[in-house]
């Protein structure tokens, strides 16, 4: 492929990862609502049916529990299914399959069975989808032992993390930020360029304050960090990329240097992943902290369609939090 044709958004990057994996391994297959003939609600699986046939690209009824349950069965027979649940809100219809079955197979079989299913879903606001099509549910999945949870912020990471997810032996919940599907975010590298699970990426170096953020909020925090730098505040921006297991070492090393930590996520505030990261940071870095760990998040409401822009953390809200921490 020529450079000009490299995937530059999340939808095309995930698609390329699926193509690479499906060409390399005949056991990799895709199933879900509208993944085949329609090419996926967000066109992520566009062209896969024509290329790999209906034995490996399987249209399913609108039944999230059925999609995940079928994928579990396929994995137990040695396949590597990628189950698409379209919007993350629909994952609640599959929650029992995801938590009580998928996440438990290895444990319940005393390690005799593995269940390498990748469950993809569109997470968060960005499409004006409103109350039932904008959930960012990482808090529920990271709390569940047995699930790896991934949330990429760039095309390169989306491709690389998907390739790694498809080669692991455990189930992975793969949250694809809806706002990034069509947004240009730099080229994904060619070929088989895996990104390891459980390793954070330093998006920007800085010694005054550590910002921990993921998914669509990485871009917002990069913009805020650039503005803060103009005022002389150098922020280190860390994208954990994998939300469980968390690369706490990378976060703690930065906080030990900066003494200040801000966590930014799109999901609702109370009980969100920001709370867990705070708990870990204040346990690990208590004597380093110059100011309270602070979070900027979505609000404690469902995502309103009309007020989406007000709901999702903005550059202005992040800058206000940076000010608050620096002037503490």
């Amino acid at each position: 492929m020529k450079t000009a044709e490299r995937p530059q958004n999340l939808a095309t990057a995930v698609r390329e990862a699926l193509v690479v994996a499906m060409e390399a391994d005949a056991d990799v297959c895709v199933l879900g609502t509208d993944v085949g003939e329609f090419g996926g609600v967000f066109r992520v699986t566009s062209g896969l049916l024509e290329r790999f046939g209906k034995e490996r690209v399987i249209d399913m009824p609108l039944d999230p529990a059925g999609v995940v349950g079928t994928a579990i069965g396929m994995a137990l027979y040695g396949l590597r299914p990628v189950a698409e649940l379209t919007f993350a809100d629909h994952a609640y219809g599959a929650f029992e399959q995801l938590t009580s079955e998928l996440a438990r197979v290895r444990y319940r079989s005393n390690g005799q069975l593995a269940c390498p299913v990748v469950v993809r879903m569109a997470a968060g606001a960005g499409g004006g989808g409103g109350i039932h099509h904008s959930a960012h549910p990482e808090a529920h999945f990271v709390h569940t032992p047995g699930l790896v949870v991934v949330c990429p912020s760039t095309p390169a990471d989306a491709k690389g993390l998907m390739l790694s997810a498809l080669r692991g032996e455990d189930p992975v919940v793969f949250l694809e930020p809806q706002a990034l599907y069509r947004r240009s975010g730099g080229d994904a590298p060619e070929g088989d360029a895996g990104v390891p699970l459980g390793v954070a990426r330093e998006v920007r170096a800085g010694s005054d304050l550590t910002i921990v953020t993921w998914g669509a909020m990485v871009r917002v925090c990069e913009d805020a960090a650039a503005k803060a730098a103009a005022d002389g505040v150098e922020c280190c921006v860390i994208d954990p990329r994998t939300l469980w297991p968390l690369d706490l070492d990378a976060i703690a090393a930065s906080v030990a240097e900066t003494g200040r930590c801000l966590i930014v996520h799109e999901a609702p505030r109370s009980g969100g992943l920001g709370a867990e990261i705070t708990a870990l940071v204040q346990e690990r870095c208590f004597l380093h902290l110059e100011a309270p760990v602070t979070r900027v998040t979505g609000f404690d409401t469902p995502v309103p369609a009309a007020l989406e822009d007000a709901y999702v953390p903005s550059v202005a809200r992040v800058l206000a939090a940076i000010d608050g921490i620096m002037s503490f």
């Binding site: 808090a139 709390h143 032992p145 709370a275 705070t278 708990a279």
Partner: peptide, 16 residues
Amino acid sequence: WPYGGIGAELAYCISH
């Protein structure tokens, strides 16, 4: 379970 449990939210609210 610890990761993302009730104690996490308490830790945030109290430490903040």
